[in-house]
Deep mutational scan, measured.
Amino acid sequence: MSIQHFRVALIPFFAAFCLPVFAHPETLVKVKDAEDQLGARVGYIELDLNSGKILESFRPEERFPMMSTFKVLLCGAVLSRVDAGQEQLGRRIHYSQNDLVEYSPVTEKHLTDGMTVRELCSAAITMSDNTAANLLLTTIGGPKELTAFLHNMGDHVTRLDRWEPELNEAIPNDERDTTMPAAMATTLRKLLTGELLTLASRQQLIDWMEADKVAGPLLRSALPAGWFIADKSGAGERGSRGIIAALGPDGKPSRIVVIYTTGSQATMDERNRQIAEIGASLIKHW
């Protein structure tokens, strides 16, 4: 067993022997301040990774656009098919120029040779490549099948209805392509620590998230040296922004954090800054 596999296998073990965790309302004060600064709703939840206990939450059962955070769930569904012998990570998928959609920095470079399922998941999570996500959605049967996968996990809230990039439209009061912070946090925890996926697939999923290259201005910008984070960000229309993450000190994750916002007129930089400040408060009061 590799060191990384050992780390993920012992996530519940280490967490069980940690000192009790206590909620700190100071972080919620910052979440509410972010709402004021952005002029928009902000949803927040913080779960203990081992027990699933909610440590703090704000608007945990209000719907927010998922945006690209759905790509972690998508690759979880792909990995479940791999575990069941219905898919192979090494299978190569070929596609054409007509398949390319807006923001496809990886797939646009491989029109000639195609990409493997493993490479597509890596591109979808680490670079948020939209064509990679659409190609992977095709392998599982489309958005409705991802929703069905989530329902089978016990998540009857999260739903995907459309493809990239239309799913980022974020129309107010439109339930399409949305989740709730509580539902997303619980589902992410199941994917990373539950028995739904094999140990190898859980490790692969967290490795992809740990290698995320496009979430630097968010929670990662607030992390002290030595902290662990595996995350996936999302951005959408109407001032929408979000991030889902597993993080913790001492090089291992111990909490799940989900943050979503929508309806702001603020710039992307300002949305990023507010999420980073929430992260800084979380870490300060850990």
Rank of each mutant, 00 (worst) to 15 (best):
P25W: 12
E26R: 12
T27R: 14
T27P: 14
L28I: 05
L28V: 06
V29F: 13
K30L: 07
V31W: 02
K32M: 08
A34G: 06
E35D: 13
D36F: 15
L38P: 06
G39I: 09
A40P: 03
R41H: 15
V42P: 00
E46K: 10
D48N: 03
D48G: 04
L49Q: 07
L49I: 15
N50Y: 05
N50W: 09
S51W: 08
S51L: 07
S51Q: 09
K53L: 12
K53W: 13
L55M: 10
L55W: 14
E56N: 10
F58G: 11
E61R: 12
E62P: 00
E62V: 05
R63C: 14
R63K: 11
R63S: 06
F64S: 00
F64P: 00
M67T: 14
S68N: 01
T69N: 02
T69P: 13
L73A: 10
L74G: 03
C75W: 02
A77G: 05
V78F: 05
L79N: 02
L79P: 00
L79T: 03
L79M: 14
S80C: 13
R81T: 09
V82G: 06
V82I: 12
G85D: 09
G85W: 10
Q86S: 12
E87C: 05
E87K: 04
E87H: 04
Q88W: 13
Q88I: 12
L89N: 06
L89H: 07
L89D: 04
G90Q: 11
R92D: 15
I93E: 12
I93W: 12
H94W: 06
H94E: 04
Y95T: 05
S96Q: 10
Q97R: 11
Q97L: 08
N98I: 05
N98M: 05
D99C: 08
V101P: 02
E102P: 06
Y103W: 11
Y103E: 06
S104Q: 02
P105I: 12
P105N: 08
V106I: 13
T107F: 02
T107L: 09
E108I: 15
E108T: 13
H110Y: 15
H110I: 04
L111V: 09
D113W: 03
D113M: 04
G114C: 11
G114K: 05
M115E: 06
T116W: 02
V117L: 14
V117C: 14
R118H: 12
R118I: 14
R118S: 13
E119L: 02
C121L: 03
C121H: 01
A124Q: 03
A124E: 00
I125S: 03
I125E: 00
T126M: 06
M127K: 13
M127V: 10
D129R: 01
D129M: 00
N130T: 02
T131R: 02
A132L: 00
A133C: 13
N134M: 04
N134K: 05
N134C: 05
L136S: 02
L137K: 01
L137I: 12
L137Y: 06
T138M: 15
I140H: 08
G141C: 13
G142K: 06
G142S: 06
K144C: 08
E145I: 04
T147E: 04
A148N: 08
F149P: 01
F149V: 15
L150N: 07
N152R: 10
M153F: 04
D155G: 01
H156L: 13
H156C: 11
H156Y: 13
V157Y: 15
T158Q: 01
R159A: 10
R159N: 14
L160R: 01
D161F: 04
R162V: 02
W163N: 09
P165K: 15
E166H: 14
E166A: 12
L167A: 06
L167C: 11
N168C: 05
N168M: 08
E169M: 10
E169C: 06
I171T: 15
I171P: 15
P172G: 07
P172F: 10
N173D: 08
E175L: 12
R176F: 12
D177H: 00
A182T: 13
A182C: 12
A182M: 05
A183H: 14
A183S: 14
A185Y: 01
T187C: 09
L188S: 05
L188K: 00
L188P: 00
R189H: 13
L192A: 11
T193A: 14
T193P: 01
G194Y: 15
E195M: 15
E195P: 13
E195N: 05
E195S: 13
L196I: 14
L197Q: 04
T198E: 11
T198C: 12
L199A: 08
S201L: 15
Q203P: 02
Q203A: 04
L205W: 05
L205M: 04
L205C: 06
L205K: 00
I206L: 07
I206W: 03
M209G: 03
E210W: 10
A211W: 15
A211N: 15
K213Q: 04
K213R: 04
V214Y: 14
V214A: 14
A215Y: 15
P217T: 13
P217Q: 13
L218G: 05
A222L: 14
L223K: 09
L223C: 03
P224W: 03
P224I: 03
A225L: 06
G226P: 04
F228K: 03
F228C: 10
I229R: 01
I229Q: 02
A230D: 00
K232D: 00
S233L: 02
S233F: 00
S233N: 01
G234T: 00
A235P: 02
G236N: 09
E237C: 15
R238P: 08
S240W: 00
S240C: 12
R241A: 14
I244Q: 00
I244F: 12
A245L: 10
L247A: 11
G248P: 00
P249D: 07
D250G: 04
K252L: 15
P253H: 06
S254A: 08
S254L: 07
R255H: 10
R255S: 08
I256C: 04
I256E: 02
I256D: 01
V257C: 08
V258D: 02
V258K: 01
I259D: 00
Y260I: 03
T261N: 09
T261P: 02
T261Y: 15
G263F: 08
G263V: 07
G263S: 13
S264M: 03
S264C: 12
Q265K: 06
A266W: 04
T267N: 09
T267E: 07
M268Q: 11
M268P: 14
D269P: 10
Q274F: 06
Q274W: 06
I275E: 01
A276M: 04
A276G: 11
E277T: 11
E277G: 12
G279M: 14
G279Y: 05
A280Y: 08
L282R: 01
K284L: 11
W286T: 02
W286R: 03
